[in-house]
Computed example of a mutant assay.
Amino acid sequence: MKLIIPMAGRGTRVRPHSHTTPKPLLPVAGTMIVERIVETFARTLDRTIDEIVYILGPDFGREIKETLKEMSTRHDAKATFRVQDRALGTAHAVSCAEEDLSGEVIIVFADTLFDSKEKVTVDDADSVIWLKEVEDPSRFGVAVHEGDTITDFVEKPSEPISNLAIIGVYYFKKGEDLKREIQYLLDNDITGHGNEYQLTDALDRLLKDGKVFKKATVDEWLDCGTLPAWLETTGEILAKENHAYDEYPDTTIHPPVFIGDNATITGSEIGPYVSIEADTVIKNSRIKNSIVQKNAALADCTLEDSTIGNHTELTGATGEVHVGDHSILKQG
Results as ranks from 00 to 15, higher is better:
V212H: 10
Q198Y: 03
M32I: 04
V257A: 02
G210K: 03
T318I: 01
L298I: 06
R10I: 00
H322L: 05
Y245D: 11
D76E: 13
A229L: 15
K2R: 15
Q198A: 11
G210S: 09
K283T: 01
R180P: 02
T48Q: 10
I253G: 10
V94E: 04
D177K: 05
V257H: 04
D46M: 01
G61L: 02
C224V: 14
T31F: 08
T302I: 00
T149W: 00
R205A: 15
Y171P: 08
D46G: 08
K23N: 08
P272I: 06
N195F: 06
T20P: 01
V120D: 00
Y197M: 10
I328W: 04
R180M: 06
H322W: 12
L227M: 11
N284A: 08
K330Y: 05
V142H: 10
F109Y: 15
T233M: 08
K119N: 00
N295F: 10
V292F: 00
D136E: 14
G309M: 08
D124W: 00
A296Q: 03
E155Q: 07
G319K: 06
K78R: 15
L207K: 04
A97G: 05
G267P: 00
L88W: 06
K330R: 03
H19I: 05
V122Q: 06
T80Q: 13
E196Y: 10
W221H: 14
G235P: 09
A91M: 02
T217Y: 07
N163K: 12
V169G: 02
T90I: 07
D85N: 14
K214A: 08
N262F: 14
S327M: 04
E63I: 04
V281G: 01
E232L: 07
K330W: 05
Y170W: 11
K214L: 02
S18F: 07
A244E: 12
P24C: 10
T20R: 05
H326P: 03
D148N: 08
H322T: 02
I5W: 12
G30R: 15
K208T: 06
R139A: 09
E313C: 00
V94F: 01
T20I: 00
A202L: 12
V134L: 08
K283C: 01
F258R: 05
A165E: 07
D148T: 14
L314A: 02
I33N: 11
E269Q: 03
N242D: 15
K65V: 01
E220K: 13
A297L: 03
P6A: 08
A297M: 05
D204P: 01
S158H: 13
I33Y: 05
V34C: 11
G267Y: 02
G147P: 06
T302M: 00
T112S: 12
D209T: 03
I106A: 04
I308S: 09
D100A: 06
L131R: 09
V14K: 07
G89W: 07
S327N: 05
R139F: 13
S102M: 02
V134A: 09
R180E: 13
L164I: 01
R205V: 04
L3Y: 08
F41P: 02
W130Q: 02
E135H: 12
E118G: 03
E277L: 12
L207F: 03
I237D: 14
E70F: 12
G194H: 11
E99V: 02
E51N: 12
